[in-house]
Structures are given as C-alpha cells and as structure tokens.
Amino acid sequence: MTTQGIEVLDAGILTHIQDGGRVGQLPQGIAPSGAQDYFSLRLANLLVGNAPTPAPLSSKDPGPAGLELTAKGPTLRFDTDAIVAVTGAPAEITLNGRRRPHNASFLVSAGDVLAIGAITGGMRSYLAVQGGIRNEPYIGSRSTHLFAQFGGIGGRALQAGDQLPLADEPLRYESVGSIVGEEAARYSLENHVLHVTAGPQDHLFTEESIDAFFGEPWTLGALNSRMGFRFAGPKLSFLPRPNYVAEAAGTDPSNIVDDIIPIGGIQCPSGSEAIVMGVENPTVGGFAKIATVISADLGRVGQLSPGDTVRFERVSTEQALELLAWQLHGDHIVQPQSAVA
C-alpha cells in the first residue's frame, strides 16, 4: 500500500526521482537514466537501511527510489514518520528550522517540514527515505528520464504540490544515526581527476592531441545536463581519413559513421570541446570519442560545477573495475552505537 507520503512545498531548482536506472532499452535509443552520482544515492539508501543502489547498467534491481537534488534542494512536508538521509554534495539541511546532519540518517515525524537549501562543494545531493519513494515504475525503474519525458512523476522534475508516495510499512529504527565513512563521503567530491579508459576512437586523433588531452586541464562550461557535460580545453586534431569515410560520415574531421556512445563517452566535435556523456546520454552518434569515463567516476562528473577544472587520467579496464568493486563491496557505513538516536 502507498497511502502515505511527502508533499512537495517547494521543488528547489531541479529535483527529480531517481534509482539505479533501467537496462535493456539501449537498442531503442533509451538511455538508462538513474542517479548521475549513483554512489551517493547508494550511500543514502544504505544509511536509511534500504537495499543498495547498483551501478549504472546492471541487471540487479534498481533499488529504492530517492531524490536527486541539483544546486538547491526542495522543501518537503512529511505526513508520516520516516527515516531519511541526505548525501552527495553538502547542503544546509533543516527539520522544522533546526539543523540536521549531512551524510547521516535521522528521524522525521509526521507533520515535519524538511528543507534542503543551497548545495555547496558539489552540484548534486541525494535524499533517501526508508522504503523508498513508491511512484509507478516505468520499464523496470522509477527513475525520471527528463529528456525522454518518462518515469518519475509525469516524466518531469518535481513541482510544488506534487505528492510522493511512501510505503505503508513499519519503520526499522536500527539504522537511525548511521553515518557515511570519510573516504566514501569524499569520493565523488574529489573530482579534480576523472579516471578514463582510452578510446574507442583515440586512434583517430594525432599523438600530440592525445598528449594534450591527458596532459592539460579541462574546464566545465555552463551548458550541462544529465545528457552531457561540456568541457573546454586544448584544441584537438585528427589524423587524415580515407575519402570514403568523409563522404559517408561528414566533412568535419571529427565525424565518424555513427556508432554507439557509452555513458561516460567523451565526444570531441571538431576537436574544439570534450563532451562527457551523462546517464541520459544520446546512445548513438557521429563524432569521434577520445576516451570513456569509468563507471565509478560518473558521479564525480555529476558533482562538477561550471568553471571547475579537471584532468583526465588514464586507467586500465581492470583498474576501473577495482574502483567499482570498492564502491560496491566496501564497508562504507558506520553504524550507530545505540539502536535509536
């Protein structure tokens, strides 16, 4: 039953329902969506005693749905007791006007108003509620796909007046007061380095451009969304192409005959920018991709603010999987000393 819930009094700047996203729809052009910083949503879910959020593109259940908050959070009124936690980028969290901790689970009573203010030190915070938000799933997930306009509530960001249904289940209090370990709390926010694997089209770039890509800083611009994050940096050049490729793909030297674009793929249109694809990525495209941000670092991308500077650091697939394994299997939650705070 889902008779209880949360009323959205103020939706903040861009707040939407997300879980681990959907899988199996890429051949139809449907990106997985899900939390851009899955690791932060995972930590929030663990804090409140929920099942953990899987990494993007997993056959596992997408986990309980929470909220992805961008730049400034919402104000919410609960009509039932609940256990909640906010993770990811730090934000000012108040319950009926009194401060509550970030990266820790706490109790909310029926009638309470939870307000999450300006988000600082990152771009996205995540709110989890024990039992998860119980909006209607769509193709196996409760995630909102903002570009494709489905999932969540009406395929859109939250608005004032929306009602978010919660599970009508007895609360399990043992997780109240849990906190996130320091190393896990820092990971997505230490985003001056983005780990990437080279390719799939690094062989189309000149050697000097490969050196420049890895050696020089890149700055996030103002035009970003969960579809893609645009970075400015050194001008990149391409090796000469056969004429038949230019005829089939397009006259710009960065054009290729369209192929798949992975989440995290870094497209370089005309060699004049680097666009890192987010979790609502275009699934197919016609520009060369110099590298691919690894799954463990997609959250780091989502935590960058316009003007932030990063370096791309090359790792092997095996190293990428080690980082992912640490996120998925590490002991990141510190349990409270007493059962009830």
């Binding site: 890429l26 051949p27 369209d258 992912l324 998925l328």
Partner: peptide, 22 residues
C-alpha cells in the same frame, strides 16, 4: 550480457561490469 546495440557498422555489447573479467 545486458544489451546488444546494433549500429550501421558495429555492434555494441553491454555487460554486467563486475561479473566477469574483461
């Protein structure tokens, strides 16, 4: 194998990352 994605000239294959070695 979670998804196979055809394009004009290549097949994309998405795998469960932590299930098998590359």
């Amino acid at each position: 194998i979670l998804d196979v994605i055809p394009t004009m000239r290549q097949l994309g294959i998405v795998v469960e990352a932590d299930r098998r070695k590359p």
